[in-house]
Lab assay of single mutants.
Amino acid sequence: VRQEELAAARAALHDLMTGKRVATVQKDGRRVEFTATSVSDLKKYIAELEVQTGM
């Protein structure tokens, strides 16, 4: 499950970095929206997932 969450989070980051205004991911069973202003929060979430998956 964590691998899927990590892939979704990375895709969301890619979307935001390429101009999409809002990206949505499932985080702990709930839907979370990230915007360009919350990229740093999304990067932290990705880092947490990488630690949890041993990457």
Rank of each mutant, 00 (worst) to 15 (best):
S38I: 04
T37Y: 08
L6W: 04
A7V: 12
E5S: 09
H14C: 12
K20W: 05
V25Q: 01
T24V: 15
R21W: 06
L6G: 01
R30G: 08
A9H: 04
V25W: 03
V51E: 14
Q3P: 09
T37S: 15
Q26F: 08
E48P: 00
K44I: 12
D28P: 01
R30M: 15
A47F: 08
E33D: 08
L6K: 01
R2K: 15
T18G: 07
T35M: 06
L6H: 02
F34I: 04
M17W: 05
Y45T: 02
T18Y: 05
Q52R: 10
L13D: 00
V25G: 03
A12D: 01
A36C: 13
D41R: 05
E4H: 06
M55P: 12
L49K: 01
V1M: 13
K43V: 14
E4S: 09
K44P: 01
A36E: 12
E48V: 09
E50D: 05
T18S: 14
R2S: 10
E5W: 06
K44N: 10
T24N: 04
S38N: 12
V25S: 02
E50F: 06
K27H: 05
D41N: 07
L49F: 02
F34A: 01
A9S: 03
L42W: 01
M17G: 04
L16P: 00
A11N: 12
R2N: 12
L6E: 02
L13F: 07
D15W: 06
E50P: 00
M17D: 05
Q26E: 08
V1H: 13
E48C: 13
E33Y: 11
K20R: 03
A23N: 03
Q26T: 14
V39H: 03
S38G: 12
T35P: 04
K43D: 03
T24W: 10
E48G: 04
A23R: 03
V25M: 05
G29N: 06
E50H: 05
S38A: 07
A47H: 07
T35Y: 12
K44V: 08
A11Y: 06
Q26N: 13
A47V: 08
M55N: 13
R31G: 09
I46R: 00
L49D: 00
K20H: 14
Q3L: 10
D28M: 02
G54E: 10
R2P: 06
I46A: 01
V39Y: 06
T18Q: 08
S38Q: 14
R10Q: 11
V1A: 10
T53S: 08
V39N: 02
A36R: 05
T35R: 05
E5R: 09
D15C: 10
S40H: 11
A36Y: 06
V1R: 14
Y45R: 02
Q3F: 13
T18H: 09
M55Y: 05
L49A: 02
L16E: 00
L6P: 00
E50A: 07
A12Q: 02
V32Y: 07
